[in-house]
Design a protein around this nucleic acid. Structure first.
Length: 330
DNA sequence: CGGATTTGACCAGCGC
DNA sequence: GCGCTGGTCAAATCCG
C-alpha cells in the first residue's frame, strides 16, 4: 500500500500543522480513489450504485478529514510531550550517566576538602541544579560517590563535585574544556574502563584554590568530553577580574560568571556545531551555537528527536501506527 | 629563561 | 598480605 504522500504530509504537520488541514484532504481523496479503484473501474454497470459510491466516497473523505484532524492533534500532543521530556531530561539527567562516571570512588578523592556535605551538581543548562542533593536526579551521582562509604565516612566528605559534558571534535585529543578558569595539568592516566586517557588539572588562577578537574572522553561517544570538577573556587571568576584578557576567558559569558557563586561555572566550547534540526530546535530554548553549557542528556534528546524526525522509516512507522490505531478505534 | 606540559614512579584505598 | 587501580608527585621536556 503506497501511503507515502499521506505519511509525508502528516509528518510535515509537525513543522507546520496548518498545512495538514490544507493539503491532506487532497491526498486522501486520491488515496481513497485508489482504494476504491475496484468499484470505480465499473461505473457503468449500475448507475444507482454510483450514487452509493459517491456517498461512500464522501463518507470516507469526511472520515479521513476527521482522522487528519486527530492526527494533527496527536502531533501537537507529541510535540508538547517531547518538549516536556526535554525539560525533564534537562533537569533530571538519566541514570545512565553512571556509565560516564567511574565505577568506584575512593575516599581520598574527598578527604582533602573541607565541607560537611556531598554536593553533587549536574550542570545541565547553564544553571546549576543546586538542589543540595535533594532531588532524585542527583541520586545517580550521589550513588556513584557515596554508595560504598559508610554514613560516618560521608560526614567527612566535603568536596563539591560537578560533572560537565562537552562536545568537541573527535580528532581533538587535547582534552581541554574551556571554562574560563586557568588550569595546570599535573597528571594523566589511562583508566581501566576507558581507553582514552584521563587528564588531571588544578586551578592555577589562585595559588590557594583547591579546585581540581578531571577531563576524560566519554567511552560511549568520543566526541563528548566529561569534565569532573571537585571543590569550590575561592576566588572570583577570571572573567570578572580580567574581562578583556585571555582567549579562554573571552568565551565566558558574563551572565554565567556573575551567577551566584560557589558552584563551578562552566562555559563549554562547542567546536562542533550540531545539525540544525528545524523542528526540534523550535522546542528547545538553548541554541547550540552560543556558548551555553549543556549536558549529554539534552544532547542525546536533541539528537534523538532530530534523527527520529528526519528518519523516513520512523516517520512511516509512526504514521502507520497512528493511523492504524485511529482506524482501529473507528 | 620561566611557565606549562609530559610521563614514569610512587602512594593509598579497596577487594580478594 | 597482595595485586589492582586511581590519584598525585616531580623530574624531564617542551614552548613561547
Amino acid at each position: 500500500m503506497d501511503c507515502s504522500p499521506w505519511i509525508n504530509t502528516s509528518l510535515d504537520l509537525n513543522i507546520n500543522p496548518r498545512r495538514v488541514h490544507e493539503e491532506v484532504p487532497k491526498y486522501e481523496v486520491e488515496s481513497n480513489l485508489f482504494s476504491l479503484g475496484m468499484s470505480l473501474r465499473k461505473p457503468s454497470a449500475e448507475e444507482e450504485s454510483s450514487g452509493a459510491l459517491v456517498e461512500e466516497l464522501k463518507r470516507v473523505s469526511a472520515e479521513n478529514k476527521k482522522l487528519t484532524e486527530m492526527l494533527a492533534e496527536m502531533c501537537e500532543n507529541y510535540n508538547t510531550l517531547r518538549y516536556n521530556l526535554m525539560e525533564y531530561m534537562r533537569k533530571n539527567p538519566p541514570a545512565d550517566n553512571k556509565e560516564l562516571s567511574p565505577p568506584m570512588k575512593r575516599k581520598s578523592e574527598f578527604e582533602s576538602s573541607s565541607n560537611n556535605n556531598i554536593h553533587c551538581n549536574l550542570i545541565s543548562t547553564g544553571v546549576n541544579n543546586n538542589n543540595n542533593g535533594n532531588s532524585e536526579s542527583s541520586s545517580s551521582d550521589e550513588e556513584s560517590l557515596s554508595c560504598k562509604k559508610p554514613p560516618a565516612r560521608e560526614e567527612t566528605i566535603k568536596a563539591k563535585v560537578s560533572r560537565v559534558y562537552c562536545r568537541t571534535e573527535s580528532s581533538d585529543a587535547s582534552l581541554i574544556v574551556k571554562d574560563g578558569y586557568q588550569w595546570r595539568k599535573y597528571g594523566q592516566k589511562v583508566t581501566r574502563d576507558n581507553p582514552s586517557p584521563r587528564a588531571y588539572f588544578k586551578c592555577s588562577f589562585a595559588p590557594t584554590c583547591p579546585v581540581k578537574k578531571k577531563v576524560q572522553r566519554s567511552v560511549d561517544d568520543p566526541s563528548v568530553v566529561v569534565a569532573t570538577y571537585e571543590g569550590e573556587h575561592n576566588h572570583p571568576h577570571p572573567s570578572q577580574m580580567e574581562p578583556t584578557s585571555g582567549s579562554n576567558r573571552c568565551r565566558t559569558p558574563i551572565s554565567s560568571a556573575s551567577h551566584s557563586s560557589c558552584a563551578p561555572t562552566v562555559t563549554l566550547d562547542w567546536t562542533k556545531s550540531k545539525s540544525s534540526s528545524s523542528d526540534s530546535s523550535k522546542n528547545v530554548t538553548i541554541n547550540p551555537k552560543i556558548d551555553t553549557p549543556e549536558v549529554v542528556p539534552q544532547i542525546l534528546v536533541e539528537q534523538m528527536a532530530s534523527s527520529l524526525t528526519k528518519d523516513p522509516n520512523f516517520r512511516a512507522a509512526l504514521a502507520a501506527a497512528m493511523s492504524g490505531k485511529m482506524l482501529h478505534r473507528n
